[in-house]
Every structure is written in structure tokens, then in C-alpha cells.
């Protein structure tokens, strides 16, 4: 067992050279490679963390947006419900008002129709009554209804001379209105009667198709009439009474 110091020196040199060689070709490339890979992994981890964070932020934004849309939808739905309720109330009130108006219109039309019917009935009744009266007078006494009306008016004028003068005032024209034009002899009878009641008074004749058969005389403030209206009204009362009795009978 001996030590060769030249060999020792050579081995020291060899060892140092080997240290340099392994440092150059082994440790440094390996460690640098590991460091580079670790850096790359760290970079990827960092990138992954950043992407994850971005994804979490996006998720949070999406959730917030969803919540906001949900809340907006609820508000919109609630608003729509309120608007629908308001619209429904408005439509209902408008419909009620329209129905009320239509009901009033129908009531008015019905009342107007009733009035027209009553007027027509009144006219038809008057016409029938007058026709019957004319026929009865003609058959039984050979006179016309106008002759009898004028005769009655002349008689009544004689009886009412005082009242007529008081009511006539200063008027010197008497207006006689009839449904149809009077015959000349009847006109002369009227003129004579008026002149007797109030001398110097002229008579003017007028016709009114809307007036009931008969005669009306107006002198100043005096208004006299001999028409079949009262009789027609009496006829109307009779018919109404008959209708009521019929209605009661139906109810019974």
C-alpha cells in the first residue's frame, strides 16, 4: 500500500476536469432544463389560474346578468300584469259605459217608438172615430161632420161674446185653422158669427194637416177650439184601460 504522488496530482486534475465536464454537459443542462420546464409549468399554471379567474369572473357576470334579467323579467311581468289589470278595468268600465249608453239609447228608441206608436194609434183612432162619426152623421141625419162642428162653433160663439171681446183686446183679425179647407157656406156662417160677436173683425182661414179634424179660432189673446182631440184622448184612455185589463188577466 503506497501512494504515488504523481498519480495523486494527476487524479486531482482528472477530478477537477471531470467536475467541469459534468457541470458543462450534465448538471447545467439538466438543471436548466428542469428550471425551464418548471418555469413553463408555472407559467401554464399561472395562465390556467388567470383563465380560471377570468372564467370565474365571467361566470359571476353571467350569474349577475341572469339574476338581473330574472329580476327585470319579474318586474316586466308584474308591470304587464298591472297594465293588463288596468287595461281590463278600463275596458270593463268602457264596456259598462257603452252598455249603459246603448241601454239608454235603446230605452230612448223604445220610448220614441212607443211615442210614434201612440201617435199613430192616436191618428188611426182619430181617423176611425172621425170616419165612423161622419158615416153615422151622414147616415142618420144627412149632415157632414164639418157642418155640425161649424154649427156648434157658431152657437158657442154667440154664447161667449162677452168673454171673446175681453180676450180679443184690440185685435181685428180672427184666424180660423182647420184640417182641410172649409166649404164656402161654412165660411160664411163663421164670418157671420164672428161679426156678430165682434163687429168689424175680418176672418182669415188657414189649413194645418197636422191638426185634428175640427176647427180652432184665434182672436187676439182668445183661443177657441172645436176638435176631436178630447174624444181621441178618451179613446186612448179606453184602449189603455183595455190593455191594462188584458195585462192583469195575463198575470192572473
Amino acid at each position: 500500500m503506497s501512494i504515488d504522488w504523481i498519480t495523486v496530482a494527476a487524479q486531482v486534475v482528472n477530478f477537477l476536469v471531470l467536475v467541469w465536464l459534468l457541470k458543462r454537459f450534465l448538471y447545467r443542462p439538466i438543471l436548466d432544463g428542469i428550471d425551464a420546464r418548471e418555469n413553463q409549468i408555472a407559467k401554464r399554471m399561472s395562465e390556467a389560474a388567470r383563465v380560471r379567474e377570468a372564467a370565474e369572473i365571467a361566470e359571476a357576470e353571467y350569474r349577475a346578468e341572469t339574476e338581473r334579467l330574472k329580476a327585470a323579467r319579474d318586474v316586466t311581468l308584474e308591470q304587464a300584469r298591472a297594465e293588463a289589470a288596468t287595461e281590463r278595468d278600463v275596458l270593463m268600465s268602457e264596456t259598462r259605459a257603452r252598455l249603459k249608453r246603448e241601454q239608454a239609447t235603446r230605452e230612448a228608441e223604445r220610448a220614441q217608438e212607443a211615442r210614434r206608436y201612440t201617435n199613430r194609434l192616436h191618428q188611426d183612432g182619430a181617423s176611425a172615430l172621425i170616419s165612423l162619426s161622419r158615416k153615422a152623421l151622414s147616415d142618420l141625419s144627412g149632415e157632414t161632420l164639418e157642418e155640425r162642428i161649424v154649427a156648434r162653433a157658431v152657437t158657442r160663439l154667440a154664447d161667449m161674446t162677452g168673454d171673446l171681446k175681453a180676450a180679443a183686446g184690440d185685435s181685428r183679425e180672427a184666424v180660423v185653422t182647420t184640417h182641410e179647407a172649409l166649404a164656402d157656406d161654412l165660411r160664411r156662417q163663421i164670418e157671420a158669427a164672428v161679426d156678430d160677436a165682434r163687429p168689424g173683425t175680418t176672418v182669415r182661414y188657414a189649413t194645418d194637416p197636422g191638426q185634428s179634424p175640427g176647427l180652432s179660432l184665434r182672436l187676439g189673446g182668445a183661443q177657441l177650439g172645436w176638435t176631436v182631440d178630447s174624444y181621441i184622448d178618451g179613446l186612448q184612455d179606453i184602449l189603455d184601460d183595455a190593455a191594462r185589463r188584458k195585462g192583469h188577466a195575463h198575470v192572473a
Binding site: V17, L18, L21, L22, P29, G33, A36, R37
Partner: peptide, 18 residues
């Protein structure tokens, strides 16, 4: 031994890229 260690190291680490 030095040659073996060096050659093996060079052969293994010559294409060492990340």
C-alpha cells in the same frame, strides 16, 4: 470513466429543450 460519464451526459442532454 470520465469519457463514459461525459459521453453519456452529452448524448442524453444534447437535445434538451423545454
Amino acid at each position: 470513466v470520465m469519457a463514459i460519464l461525459t459521453i453519456v451526459s452529452v448524448l442524453i442532454t444534447r437535445n434538451l429543450r423545454p
